[in-house]
Design a protein around this nucleic acid. Structure first.
Lengths: 259, 259
DNA sequence: CAGTGGTCTAGACCACATC
DNA sequence: ATGTGGTCTAGACCACTGA
């Protein structure tokens, strides 16, 4: 891996190698390389990275340049830095990460999370048009479909229909059924070394289907909120599609500019 | 204004003044001061700040320290930096800022904006419980209430009920009625030197009121999305409360983690 | 051409955590 | 005591902008 950063279009003596186009600053090249090393599992979630000094020596750059690379990774949530200790690969298993994507709140402001998850079915099927579009798959590609019901305060409140591309995650059906994990993100991270770093959601209002009305125990004429979510891995690949359906008498969807 | 940054709890020779507790790093003190100067109108939206070098001289610090302060301001959207030109106070009147808070999209992904705004009424009234709570006002405090209807593709799609605290923004009723601005943010910025930098939104599904159904031209049994928004100024003060009601047959609410 | 922000270096001291 | 990230400095070269 050759790091270079020349400004001059032709052969000016910047630093490092002589010529050749190199639009990316050094610290971004370092960042890309470090991200790749995290993704390929050189350091697993929760593990510590080498210190800035060691990395600077390894890349033959100054500490400040490596620092800037790591700081960008930290600001994107891929690693977290602890003064006096070191830099750690973030994990959905530890820290505040698991809650970052939960935007549904009870009226008292409490996040709807916790372990009150009931699995209604697992199914190997072919993707619906919407799911395929969200996942960037060809129509009718095979997916693992999971239906879950979350409870809050003793009442069923959230219905989640989750689709995972089976070809991308071989063997995940069995793992899902065996572990019934409360966090799909954590499963993707542990089993497939895929870190979910970004989600896109679309929220709509609609009337519930009869089955939904029954599962969520809704009064007649009660509309529901439908959240359609696509989760993306760090490399930008869509890895999960789901719709969340919920009654909105005591639940709302919260959104802050700049999270 | 005294800048100091001592580490030692008692009198160690850090730099600058001798003792005294100073938990904030220098660059944050600089940032706070610069933010204050922007807020008090020393540099108006769209205007250019002094260069890093001049500010460093003014504060008696190194360029790197001032740079870090400005970089934080830029990452929060208060200023924007242009290589070769300078640092500018961001404005809702120019640049991409006006769209940052528009989360409602048409099904084709187009943002619902533009000038298709119809003003239905202006009214001086006392705040409802919800509006007062959102604005942090005592119950029944006086507010200016505005009702607007936005069109898209020739059809009415968004109904906005906007409340502004009249005591905080004297004379704004007349300005609203005279200018009928498409952007309230811009009005607050121009008339009152208040920059909206953050919003909080709560989204719910519900059935429309008869008047809403009529204004939005909705079929019976069609639920609507209700977005309740509080806008905050840079200093964290709530400055506007509104609810946006919209049909969701061809409109959705978009939300991305990390905007 | 002079001035701006963008990048990079080398070195220093600090608080904090761990051993 | 050692090593970590956090802050700060001083200086350098660069690309880009606009006069």
């Amino acid at each position: 891996m050759i790091m270079q950063y020349n400004a001059a279009p032709d052969d000016a003596p910047g630093r490092g190698a002589g010529s050749g186009p190199s639009p990316q600053p050094l610290y971004r090249q370092v960042k890309s390389h470090l991200v790749h090393r995290v993704l390929t599992g050189e350091w697993r979630p929760g593990e510590i990275l080498p210190s800035e000094i060691k990395l600077a020596e390894e890349y033959g750059l100054s500490q400040g340049t490596v620092r800037k690379a790591i700081e960008e990774m930290a600001s994107e949530g891929l690693v977290s830095r602890k003064a006096g200790r070191g830099t750690f690969v973030t994990s959905h298993g530890t820290g505040r990460r698991p809650f970052r994507f939960h935007r549904l709140r009870a009226d008292d402001g409490q996040k709807i999370a916790g372990d009150n998850v009931q699995f209604l079915h697992f199914r190997e099927t072919s993707a619906t048009a919407r799911a395929a579009a969200g996942l960037g798959l060809p129509g009718k590609a095979p997916v693992i479909e999971t239906l879950r019901l979350r409870h809050y305060d003793g009442r069923p409140v959230l219905l989640e229909l989750i689709c995972l591309p089976s070809r991308r995650f071989p063997g995940i059906a069995a793992a899902l059924e065996a572990q019934r994990p409360a966090s799909i993100c954590l499963l993707l991270e542990r089993r497939h070394n895929v870190l979910v770093t970004r989600i896109e959601e679309r929220v709509r209002a609609r009337m519930p289907e009869p089955q939904e009305r029954q599962l969520l125990n809704l009064a007649p004429q009660t509309p529901v909120l439908e959240v359609e979510r696509v989760s993306f891995s760090l490399s930008g690949e869509p890895v999960e599609w789901r719709t969340i359906t919920c009654a909105t008498d005591s639940i709302y969807y919260a959104s802050n500019s700049s999270d």
